[in-house]
Design a protein around this nucleic acid. Sequence first.
DNA 1: ATAAAACTTGGAGTAAACTCCAAGTCAAGC
DNA 2: GCTTGACTTGGAGTTTACTCCAAGTTTTAT
Lengths: 124, 124
Amino acid sequence: MTIKEVSEKYSIAEDTLRYYEKVGLIRPVTRKNGIRQYGEAEIANIEFVKCMRSAGLPIKILAQYLKLLDEGESTKEERLKLLKDQRNNLAQKADELKKAIDRLDYKINLLYENGNNKLKGDTR
Amino acid sequence: MTIKEVSEKYSIAEDTLRYYEKVGLIRPVTRKNGIRQYGEAEIANIEFVKCMRSAGLPIKILAQYLKLLDEGESTKEERLKLLKDQRNNLAQKADELKKAIDRLDYKINLLYENGNNKLKGDTR
DNA sequence: ATAAAACTTGGAGTAAACTCCAAGTCAAGC
DNA sequence: GCTTGACTTGGAGTTTACTCCAAGTTTTAT
C-alpha cells in the first residue's frame, strides 16, 4: 500500500503520515525505490494510532509506548503503567464530556420550552 | 470577588481569566479603581465556561454564543442550532473516547494474562 | 509618605499537532 | 530522451489556547 492509499483509506493526510513516522509514532516504513510501502503490520499500527489520537492521546505518549514495545519484554511493567494511566485519563475525560453534554441538553431544553432564556440563575 | 480569588476557586490562571475576557468568552468585568470585581453572574459564566472548555468546546464557539445571547431574543434559533451542533460534536467525541478506552482495556488485559504481547495480529 | 504588594495593559513567547512549501529525485509514457 | 506526475526531504508556517513579561499604576501597611 502506498502512502496515498493509506491516506485515503484512513483519511489521514500524507504529510501527517510522514510526520508520524518522523516523530516515532509509527515504525520506519520499508521503501521500494525510496517510496514507502505500508505492510499489514504498519496498517494495523496506523489504525491503532488513529483510534488513540482521535481520543486525544498525546503523540509523545504514543511514541514512547512504541519505543517501549520495541525494547522488549523488560519494559512490560512500564508499558502496563503507561496504558493504565492513559486509560484513566480518558475515563476522566469521558466524565467531563458527559457533564458538558448534560449541561448542553439542559440548555437546549430550556430554549425549547421557554423562548426566554433568562430564567433565574441561568444567564448563559 | 477579585481575580485572584476566582483564579484560586476555579483553578484558572489570572492570565487566562483576563484572556477569556479579552476574546469575548466572558463579559467585561466591572471594575473598582480599575480592579476587576467579579459578581455572581460573572462567576456563573466562568463556571459554565470552565465546564465547556474542559470538554473541549473551542473558545471561538463559546465567544460566539455569548455574543448571540447578548444580541437578544432574535438569535434564539441560531443559539439553538449552535448548542445542538456542539452537543452532537461532544457525543461523537464521547463515542471515540469509549472506543479508545475499550481498546486500552483490552491491551491491559492482554498484558496481565500473558507477558508476551505478540499475540497474533496485535503488534502494538 | 514611602516601600512593598497587588494589580493593570499590550504584546511577545510557547507548546502541540499538524500543514504547507520549495527543491530535488525517479519511473513511466510518448 | 524528455516531459509529466508522483514521490521524496528538511524546514518553515499555521492554529489554538494559553502563558509570560516588562513597564506602569494603585493600594496597603508601616
